[in-house]
Design a protein around this nucleic acid. Structure first.
Length: 499
RNA sequence: GGGGCGUUAGCUCAGUGGUAGAGCAUUCGGCUUUUAACCGACUGGUCGAAGGUUCAAAUCCUUCACGCCCCA
């Protein structure tokens, strides 16, 4: 954007002239007007007061906000001021204001920030209104707002200029209030169970805790490369070693992958660890959390999302990975469901690439992702993930091919991932060595060997279970948002070109 | 990475080869109970960018940029 007024639209140039006039008259950006109530406080407090009682009570109020409507009828006007709580109407009468104020007001624009004080009354249609005996322009807005009826519809502008979206689109404000309420609900839920909220580094020397490509950055003074974390997992488990038996972190992870309606390069995860618990305890906990959250946030256990209805009022379904694979591949021979060569043949039929070092477990997951994941519409816990694809999970005691792990799906999307933690340092070291081998074979998503983490496990990680919950996807679900960008205040965008 | 759709006034959108339009906003005038206020007049555009076809391009073609959706 340019600073040269001659390049600006006439609308902006017009407002800039008005600002120049304000500067001549005095302080164009005053900060000495104070309100004594928000719009919603007034609407709530005086909801039952008639015009007669209001006039008898002579309730003096001072309100502020952005002028979202301006209706001038000769010597009197109505305006709507929008503050953080909502909108309140103000009536201005020329003869009820100081000399010249009304004439000045007529030059103000929709979008300007205004303060007004006076007594409350009710209009003929019953709307609570402030009859102004003082009104002041607090901040001049130089840019016109989008058209009042349709609002701002252009997706690109809504994401790039979120401030405009928030000014004019109440639905957008609501999404972000709901987001905040969801996170507050989670904190209250966990705090009540004596979990400790912690913060662990975003910048890490060793990448680990998940299978994903990292962003790299560089520390100049130390002249070293650092990874932006793909997960906080290993640090949180170090804290459990340290004796914080219940910890959680709600924070950003960074993954250097594609951008889509469900992926943003940085996204928010709840990650939680609980000692002396197993993955089934966390399934129960997540279920209770989500049931209560839907009731608290939505006021119902029926979650409507993009034309589907998800039932949050009953026990969620459970299936194993192999059950899903069999259900959605009815021709698959169950006796050979762990036969690497057999599964490779099925993958080829499905058009899934098979790598030489992919084992049966990895191929099961490929088939699961391709044929089953999208079908998991109603909330479902999927358990018993192959050990091969679960390098941090505890092996199942009865069946070491799988781990005590689950993922949770709603609407065909992964919402959460949890497991009983692998706390055997020798098994963990072996899993890290396998990851290193996979990385050496060319998989840039594989984990590195984290020597300090092994050392921490050698001090003793108590039997522990952990879970990660994708907050953005949860918010999408509870706000009926089709794209992750709708629930991120500033979603990642390619740079805008300013010329 | 592939495919589809889109980009026209500040905003929301029309305009499929022949003089760039509407509503809202802006500006001016009127109006002391409006609710997308209303009435009247006016103003506002390198039609995303570059190139090409054509007597003539917002419109057809090519490339690029950005966005949205689907697929990998």
């Amino acid at each position: 954007m340019t600073d040269k007024p001659q390049d600006e639209s006439k609308l902006i140039a017009e407002r800039r002239r008005k600002l120049d006039a304000l500067r001549v008259d005095g302080n164009a950006y005053p900060n000495d007007f104070r309100r004594n109530a928000t719009a919603d406080e007034l609407l709530t407090t005086f909801a039952d007061h008639t015009d007669e009682t209001l006039r008898a009570e002579n309730v003096q109020v001072a309100v502020v906000g952005r002028m979202m409507a301006k209706r001038v009828m000769g010597k009197a006007s109505f305006i709507k001021l929008q503050d953080r709580s909502g909108q309140i109407q103000v009536r201005l009468e020329r003869d009820h204001l100081a000399e010249g104020v009304y004439a000045a007001f007529k030059k103000w624009d929709v979008g300007d920030i205004v303060g007004a004080s006076g007594a409350l009354f009710r209009t003929q249609t019953g709307e609570l209104t402030v009859l102004a005996d003082e009104v002041r322009l607090l901040t001049k807005s130089l840019r016109p707002l989008p058209e009042k009826f349709h609002g701002l519809a252009d997706q690109e502008t809504r994401y790039r200029q979120r401030y405009v979206d928030l000014i004019v689109n109440e639905e957008s404000r609501k999404v972000f209030r709901t987001r905040s309420a969801i996170i507050a609900y989670i904190r209250a839920f966990l705090d009540a169970q004596d979990y400790l909220e912690v913060e662990t580094p975003m910048m890490q020397v060793t990448k680990g805790g998940a299978v994903a490509r990292p962003f790299t950055t560089h520390h100049n003074a130390l002249d070293m490369s650092l990874f932006l974390r793909i997960a906080p997992e290993l640090n949180l488990k170090r804290l459990v070693v340290g004796g914080f038996e219940r910890v959680y972190e709600i924070n950003r992870n960074f993954r250097n992958e594609g951008v889509s309606t469900q992926h943003n390069p940085e996204f928010t995860m709840l990650e939680l660890y609980r000692a002396y618990a197993d993955y089934e305890d966390l399934i129960e906990m997540l279920e209770a959390l989500l049931h209560g959250m839907a009731e608290s946030i939505l006021g119902t256990t029926v979650v409507r999302y993009q034309g589907e209805e998800f039932n949050f009022g009953e026990r969620f379904a459970r299936m194993t990975v192999e059950e899903v694979v069999r259900k959605y591949n009815p021709d698959l021979d169950p006796a050979r469901i762990r036969d690497r060569g057999y599964l490779a043949g099925i993958c080829k039929k499905l058009g899934v690439a098979v790598r030489d070092n992919d084992g049966a477990g990895k191929l099961q997951i490929e088939i699961f992702d391709k044929t089953g994941e999208h079908e998991l519409r109603q909330p479902t816990f999927i358990t018993q993930y192959p050990t091969e694809v679960s390098p941090l999970s505890r092996r199942n005691d009865a069946d070491p091919f799988v781990t005590d792990r689950f993922e949770f799906f709603i609407g065909g999307r992964e919402i959460a991932n949890g497991f009983s933690e692998l706390n055997d340092p020798e098994d963990q070291a072996e899993r890290f060595r396998e990851q290193v081998a996979i990385a050496a074979a060319g998989d840039d998503e594989a984990m590195a060997f984290d020597h300090d983490y092994i050392r921490a496990l050698e001090y003793g990680l108590p039997p522990t279970a952990g879970i990660g919950v994708g907050i953005d996807r949860l918010v999408m679900l509870l706000t009926d948002s089709p794209s992750i960008r709708d629930v991120l205040l500033f979603p990642h965008m390619r740079p805008e070109v300013f010329d």
